[in-house]
């Protein structure tokens, strides 16, 4: 992964020099380890700050909504799928974009690393190993063991739409059960499900970091902020918390690419993907639909087909 950076910089500088784009969106080193932050490079010199490693999990498609400039964007598989969704939803023009596709080998879950010791000083990587240095800690770990949950079952690591690829496409998992996590919950009884989600959301502080990190959540006024009528309370009442997560997931039905940005952004470590995952699976099972794979087909929830499933209607 880290060897991509030279090529990324080279392409970015080239398109800025040629005035193909007004800026390039990429990542730069964050202030703490494993927290790379988005970087908007407007000049060739800005590009030198770019980095690429296993901590670039933020979905950069989030920064494209409604932009009018010409933009170069460095995009992983999931990012490109969200870019496709943005184009389909008229949030950005394809012509304005120069997509630098990055075949992705998965991103490291910083929580798994943070669990190793209290303070991490540095995390570096070399090929398939990650070297973690921290308080009384100096360890080499396998990258594969530290991946984000969504990356372990990802079947679209390669960009689906791009102007240029920085490396050859990576091998796609074929031996994983993509829906194992959803099936586990589906197998539960009604009461069990209820208490499972009770436990899951107990920690939620309603900071809306998941909403802000999500490229799909671009509504000018979110339903939680509406006051006429006010659909739900603003506090930490468990019904309100549940309503928020539930409706947010609903708004992502048929659009979510399981990029994991929401779970990654959560300060209390809730994996709210369990909500969106179910809808993702339903879309796949009912309509054979996976979000953001093509520009040519309208999503199932805004079209009608005579053979749409309707067994649930009386």
């Amino acid at each position: 992964m880290i060897d991509y950076i030279d090529k990324i910089k080279q392409i970015s500088k080239q398109i800025l020099t040629d005035c193909r784009v007004d800026m390039v969106i990429g990542f730069r080193q964050g202030t703490v380890p494993m927290m790379n932050e988005p970087c908007f490079a407007k000049t060739v010199d800005d590009v030198d700050a770019f980095v690429w490693d296993s901590h670039c999990g933020i979905n950069l498609a989030n920064y494209l909504t409604g932009r009018k400039e010409k933009i170069g964007i460095i995009a992983k598989g999931c990012d490109t799928r969200n870019i496709v969704t943005h184009i389909i939803e008229n949030k950005i023009d394809r012509d304005r974009l120069y997509i630098i596709g990055v075949p992705c080998r998965g991103m490291v879950d910083r929580r798994k690393v943070n669990a190793l010791c209290d303070s991490i000083y540095e995390v570096t990587e070399q090929g398939d190993t990650v070297k973690v240095t921290g308080e009384n800690l100096d360890r080499q770990l396998a990258r594969a063991d530290l991946l984000q949950e969504n990356c372990t079952t990802c079947v679209h690591p390669n960009p689906v739409i791009y102007d240029e690829l920085v490396a050859d496409e990576v091998e796609v998992h074929t031996d994983v059960d993509r829906w194992a996590d959803v099936k586990k919950i589906e197998a539960m009884g009604s009461d069990e499900k209820w208490s499972y989600f009770d436990d899951l959301l107990k920690e939620c502080i309603r900071c809306y970091a998941c909403r802000n990190a999500c490229p799909l959540c671009y509504c000018p006024t979110c339903f939680v902020d509406e006051s006429k009528p006010q659909w739900m309370g603003k506090g930490q009442d468990e019904t309100d918390v549940r309503t928020f997560h539930f409706l947010r997931a609903y708004h992502c039905a048929g659009r979510c690419t399981d990029c994991g940005a929401c779970a990654r952004a959560c300060p209390v470590g809730i994996d709210m993907r369990v909500f969106t995952r179910k809808l993702e699976k339903d879309c796949f099972d009912l309509y054979g639909w996976e979000a953001g794979l093509t520009l040519d087909v309208r999503p199932p929830l805004d079209t009608y087909q005579a053979d749409d499933p309707e067994e649930f209607i009386k």
Partner: peptide
């Protein structure tokens, strides 16, 4: 909703 434990 059934997925979240509301009876279908």
């Amino acid at each position: 909703m059934a997925h979240m434990g509301v009876e279908s």
